[in-house]
Structures are given as structure tokens and as C-alpha cells.
Amino acid sequence: MKRALVWLAAVAGAAVSVIPFYWMVVAATHDDGELFASPPPFLPGGELMSNLVALESTIHFSRVMATSLWTAVVYTALSALVSAMCGYGLAKYRFRGRGLLLGTVLATMMIPFQVLLVPLFQMMASVGWVDSYQAIIVPFLANSFGIFLMRQAFLDFPDELLESGRLDGAGDLRIFYGIVLPCVRPQLGALVIFTFMAQWNAFIWPLLMLNSEERFTVPVALNHLIGLSHVDYAGLMLGAFLATLPLTLVFLLFQRQFVSGLLGGALKG
């Protein structure tokens, strides 16, 4: 009986999370007219190709996806590196003002982004970065959440290992890349999933920064389908559906890393 209730709850939870996604697939394969019919369609339709062609011609979807992909990959790689290095420094090095520095990093997490928008925009404008790729990558490389996450990961790392590395004559960089980093793969995997998702879904900043259509990212370009007197729902849904694919891929890829890292640690311990 209790088991049945748990099952029921699980099924209900699954339905709640799957139905919107299913509707996205359904909507992506119908034309706008069919979507507003009553009753609305319940099965995927046959307009996938024509919607795809329309999406490509209205917002150059393939180019937009490519832009989003490479900027998100570059950002994720760089920002993960910066987070790991800063976190390592804050966790394992003793220097004056370390506590203050950590406090500052944590404090910046609490500043709402809306407050930063205008000053950051002015900074970008004064260095001539408006409408450039670096403007959507560089300002957020030092990601306070990532630094904090990595610092916590490094805190538990045994100092003895570092010392033995040093005794064997390894330099700081060698120790970092050769010994420390491989051990925090699970946390790094989690960070990569998180930062990739954040950059992939980033909307307001790229919207403000990017002015040329050839530099648009997916969320900014999809936003163009919402017009004054017409909303291209089929295009929106198809675009949103395709935009979830890279996210799923990244998740699957790094989730394995994430889980295997956790299990590996368990066995070794």
C-alpha cells in the first residue's frame, strides 16, 4: 500500500515534469494555426521540417546554435579553470587577508545582477566591447559560486598529499594539475554542468551586449520570435526544444564523470 502511494507520487511527479516537455515537442511539429485549434493537438504533427526551414530563415538558427555552443564551451572551460585555481588558492595557501578575500568573494554572490547591469555596461562601452563576444565571456570568468564550490572541494584535500608531491620535487603548477585537479573531478563535473547551463541560458546580459544579428546567442535570437502582433510559437517551441539538446548532452557526459568520481572515491577510501 505504502509502495503504491510512493509509485503514484513518482508517476505524478514524472508527469508534471514530462508534460511541458512533451507539449514542446508537439508544438514544435505543428504550425501556428494548428496550435490554436480547439482541442489542441495531442500528438506530434508533420510540420517539423517546414518549421525547421522557417526557423533557419528567420533567425539563422544553425549559426545561432554554433555561436551559443562555442561561447558556452569557451566560457565553461575558462571559468572552470579560474574557479578551480582561485578555490585552490583560497583553500590551501596561507596568506594575509585570505579570510577577507573569501568574504569578498562570498559577498559578491549576494549582489543582485540588476544592480551591476548599468555599471558593467558602462565598463564594456568604455573599453569598446559592446557587441563583442568577449563581453559575454570575460566579465563572468571569476564566478564567485564556482570559486566557493571549488574551495569547499579542496578543503578536504589532505595536505600530506601536497607535501609528498613537494618532497618529490613537483612545482605548484605540477601539483595542481597532476595531483589535485584529478581528485576533484566530481565537483569539477558538477561545476561544468552548472556553468555551461548558466551560460547557455544566459539572456539579459547577452541581450544587452549583442547588437548584431550574426552574434546572437540562442535565447536572444529566440526572443525575436515574439513580435508585436504575432508570436511565432511553433518556431519558439522548436528552437527551445533544439536548445535543450546540447544541455542534455553536457549533462549526460559530465554526470558520468560526476558519479564515477564519487564512486571511485568511495572504493579507494
Partner: peptide
């Protein structure tokens, strides 16, 4: 794009750039 055009315009006016 229409949906967030005024966000862009407001920030541009506020920061007097872009």
C-alpha cells in the same frame, strides 16, 4: 526584437552609451 527592446534602450540611455 520587441519583447525586451526597452531593456536594451533603457540601459543604453541610463549608461549613456551603446
Amino acid at each position: 526584437g520587441y519583447d525586451n527592446a526597452y531593456d536594451k534602450i533603457t540601459v543604453g540611455l541610463k549608461s549613456n552609451s551603446g
